[in-house]
Amino acid sequence: CHSECLGNCSQPDDPTKCVACRNFYLDGRCVETCPPPYYHFQDWRCVNFSFCQDLHHKCKNSRRQGCHQYVIHNNKCIPECPSGYTMNSSNLLCTPCLGPCPKVCHLLEGEKTIDSVTSAQELRGCTVINGSLIINIRGGNNLAAELEANLGLIEEISGYLKIRRSYALVSLSFFRKLRLIRGETLEIGNYSFYALDNQNLRQLWDWSKHNLTITQGKLFFHYNPKLCLSEIHKMEEVSGTKGRQERNDIALKTNGDQASCENELLKFSYIRTSFDKILLRWEPYWPPDFRDLLGFMLFYKEAPYQNVTEFDGQDACGSNSWTVVDIDPPLRSNDPKSQNHPGWLMRGLKPWTQYAIFVKTLVTFSDERRTYGAKSDIIYVQTDATNPSVPLDPISVSNSSSQIILKWKPPSDPNGNITHYLVFWERQAEDSELFELDYCLKGLKLPSRTWSPPFESEDSQKHNQSEYEDSAGECCSCPKTDSQILKELEESSFRKTFEDYLHNVVFVPRKT
């Protein structure tokens, strides 16, 4: 048989008469490798580009789960590009990614509803959504962080984005990388972005840091009482949809009607710091009717980097990364020049730590249904340095008659930039024990000054392991946590139920 035959053949030295091919099969003959313009397919066939392209389009058009959109890589027609490569849609070739590779997620039936953290986790790592997304989240724990972890990498949506009755959302900033909504599939009414009845939605994105392009379709905003109209108009300008909307697409009466839409800028007039305090004062603000001013709200939190936005980490279910302080308005003076500047002394802060701070007014709604208010920009203030805590785990070892090696770990709280350490030492008198000992005694162990690591005695271990207080009263049991108490109650309830079950099964009433 021919060298490319495997198993047997019907005619000697003829690659077209093989029972099976050793390498690849091409047009009725066995070959060692697939010549151009053919590609290896499933490690035994040679196919042309049209064959591989037909497989790709067949799966793409069917949208069946589990099928493969075949691509070409290293002269092979394979189910998908290997790690580190992405497909070129024009020629199906796998090309190296520039940075992290995109991950295209194809949605069944063309859309997916995100109504819980669990459903959001199914899209973790996706960068391109081939379909439409509907966000409908009523509640949950730590929602802002969970949504950002699972949806934060999405850069492109081919269909539309719909935010509907998501009472738990305060902001859409968890879509931190969303840059493009194509609108290839539109919501009824030709809408590519749809926001309806979101009672706590206050911000779409921080438009000073976020760009969003909507290729096709219109915007729809109705019944978002805490979303200011200025935020919607800003989205029109940034996304390129200005002029597409009709009169009733953006409701003037049901958007922002319960919001404090600040239209003035508060400026800080005085800032002073110490290692654990920050004193702030800002310019006074009074609405047209000074009785509408209820006070100020001061927001602050630790910020290692200057990239904080107002609604980071917030949701309507209680999660809030900001510390909020309510401040009463100052006494009002008739003389504008003698107006008191409101302020606040922030206490209990960490030394040498940068804080993000902003302040906003708290006002009631005027009778004319106009909203007044003022808010400052987010500023960054760093507390002063102070003395560091003591170095940890000092170790001293003498390696000769004239040297001592000293080692330690950095302090747990540096409280500033540590530039150097101060080492103090003092000579001590020799131990009298060394002169009084009889060095001729056998088995004498000389006193040693070398360091030995501390260890816990058996008594201390027994005390720590004991669940009861000892007789001397030195140790006591740790208080039980809520989960331990709940577990004990469940076990007790189970024992009672099981005992009742045994009584009912074992003891049967005697027939009379």
Rank of each mutant, 00 (worst) to 15 (best):
K103N: 06
V104A: 13
V104R: 04
H106M: 11
L108E: 06
L108R: 12
G110C: 07
K112Y: 00
K112Q: 05
K112G: 06
I114E: 04
D115R: 10
S116F: 01
T118V: 11
S119N: 15
A120N: 01
Q121V: 00
Q121Y: 03
Q121S: 03
E122A: 15
E122T: 14
R124Q: 03
R124H: 14
G125P: 02
G125F: 09
C126V: 01
C126I: 03
V128G: 10
S132N: 12
L133K: 06
I134W: 04
R138E: 02
G140M: 11
L143S: 09
A144Y: 07
A149M: 12
A149N: 15
A149Y: 14
N150V: 01
L151Q: 01
I154Y: 00
E155A: 05
E155G: 09
E156S: 05
I157F: 04
S158W: 14
Y160C: 14
Y160P: 01
Y160W: 12
L161P: 02
L161A: 05
L161N: 01
K162V: 14
I163Q: 02
R164H: 15
R165L: 06
R165I: 04
S166A: 04
S166T: 08
Y167S: 02
Y167C: 03
L169H: 06
L169P: 11
S171W: 09
L172I: 15
F174D: 02
F174C: 08
F174V: 08
F175C: 02
R176I: 10
R176T: 14
K177Y: 11
R179D: 14
L180V: 11
R182F: 11
G183P: 06
E187K: 12
E187V: 11
I188W: 10
Y191S: 15
S192V: 13
S192D: 03
F193A: 05
F193C: 03
F193D: 04
A195V: 09
A195E: 02
D197M: 13
N198L: 06
Q199V: 10
N200Q: 11
L201T: 05
D206I: 07
D206A: 12
W207T: 04
W207K: 10
K209F: 12
K209V: 11
N211L: 09
L212V: 12
T213V: 09
G217Q: 11
G217P: 02
H222E: 13
Y223W: 03
N224K: 02
L229T: 11
E231C: 15
H233Q: 05
K234T: 14
M235W: 06
E237S: 05
V238N: 02
V238Q: 11
S239N: 05
T241R: 06
T241H: 10
T241I: 12
R244Y: 12
R244A: 10
Q245R: 13
R247N: 08
R247H: 15
N248R: 06
A251M: 14
L252N: 08
L252E: 07
K253I: 14
K253N: 14
K253C: 03
Q258Y: 13
Q258I: 01
A259S: 06
S260Q: 05
S260A: 09
E262A: 00
E262G: 02
N263E: 14
N263R: 12
E264Q: 05
E264W: 08
K267P: 03
F268V: 09
S274G: 10
D276V: 01
K277W: 14
I278V: 14
L279K: 15
R281S: 11
W282S: 01
E283H: 10
Y285E: 00
P287L: 04
P288V: 14
D289R: 05
F290Q: 01
R291N: 03
L293N: 00
L294W: 02
L294S: 06
L298Q: 01
L298S: 05
F299I: 12
K301H: 06
E302T: 09
P304R: 10
Q306R: 09
N307R: 10
F311N: 11
F311M: 06
D312G: 15
D315E: 15
C317I: 15
C317V: 10
N320Y: 13
N320L: 12
W322I: 13
W322N: 12
T323I: 11
T323S: 11
V324C: 11
V325R: 14
D326N: 07
I327G: 02
I327T: 06
I327C: 05
D328E: 14
D328S: 13
D328H: 08
P330M: 04
S333F: 04
D335W: 15
N340E: 07
H341D: 12
R347A: 03
R347L: 07
L349E: 00
W352H: 13
Y355E: 01
F358T: 05
F358M: 07
V359M: 04
K360P: 03
V363R: 06
D367V: 10
D367R: 06
T371C: 00
Y372D: 03
G373W: 01
A374V: 02
S376F: 00
I378K: 08
I378T: 11
I379R: 04
V381F: 05
S389I: 04
S389M: 03
S389V: 00
P391D: 02
P391L: 04
L392R: 13
I395A: 05
I395Q: 07
V397A: 15
V397Y: 15
V397S: 15
S398V: 04
N399D: 15
S400E: 15
S401K: 12
S401D: 09
S401N: 15
S402A: 15
K407T: 03
K409M: 00
